[in-house]
Simulated scan of single mutants.
Amino acid sequence: MTQRLRYANDTYERDEFGVWRYRWGDPVPGAHDLTLADLLAIHTSDAAATRELGRAELEWLAGERDDIGEVLVQQHGDRTPTTGDLVVGMAAPELHVQLMLTVADVADLAHVSKATIDSYRSRGTLPEPQVQRGRTPLWSRPVIKRWLATRPGAAAEAARREALAARRAHADRVAVAPGAPMRRPA
């Protein structure tokens, strides 16, 4: 099947070649298809989020359809795909729960308060979280890094920090040595 698949609030997209990419086009490092067989091998109650299956896929799973032209499956050479080959999502190292960022983490990286992050979320200026664990939204680090670099005001913020660093460097260069007399600038 050559259809594109979107995942995790449309943050990731599987292209026609089976490569998982960020919304902005870069490939997701270490990403691979999450299949039905992968999910069935998970023995926890906290299974990975999956996509909604289409009618053709449901019919194929129920044995009511043989044609897999509209069914998104992993292809393995000439072997006929089985139900375990059905692609239901994406797995990538950045989506491991211990690597994902909470509201507090995002606030720290953005140098703002958690309330400001909540405000960004309510206004829709922060990307949707990739995962919701209970009531806790979680973002992948690359998505937040991209947002920080491209959000409105990012250029002004970078210029402000650069100017502050330059002032500090200048102050360090003109610092008076201990015991030296201070002079007023002319």
Rank of each mutant, 00 (worst) to 15 (best):
L34Q: 12
L34T: 03
T35N: 13
T35I: 12
T35E: 14
L36M: 14
A37Q: 14
L39G: 10
I42M: 11
H43M: 02
H43N: 11
S45I: 07
S45Q: 06
D46E: 10
A47F: 08
A47M: 13
A48M: 12
A49G: 15
A49H: 13
T50H: 05
R51F: 10
E52A: 09
L53Y: 09
R55P: 03
A56W: 04
A56K: 07
A56Q: 09
A56L: 07
A56Y: 04
E57L: 02
E57W: 00
E57G: 03
L58P: 01
L58W: 03
W60E: 02
W60D: 04
W60Y: 03
L61Y: 06
A62E: 09
G63I: 02
E64F: 10
E64C: 09
R65L: 14
D66Q: 07
D67Q: 09
D67K: 09
G69T: 13
G69V: 04
G69D: 14
E70A: 13
E70P: 00
V71I: 03
V71Q: 04
V71C: 03
L72F: 00
V73I: 02
V73Q: 03
Q75L: 12
H76W: 08
G77Q: 11
D78V: 10
D78Y: 06
R79Y: 05
R79Q: 11
T80G: 09
P81V: 09
T82D: 15
T83N: 15
G84C: 14
G84Y: 11
G84S: 12
D85Y: 13
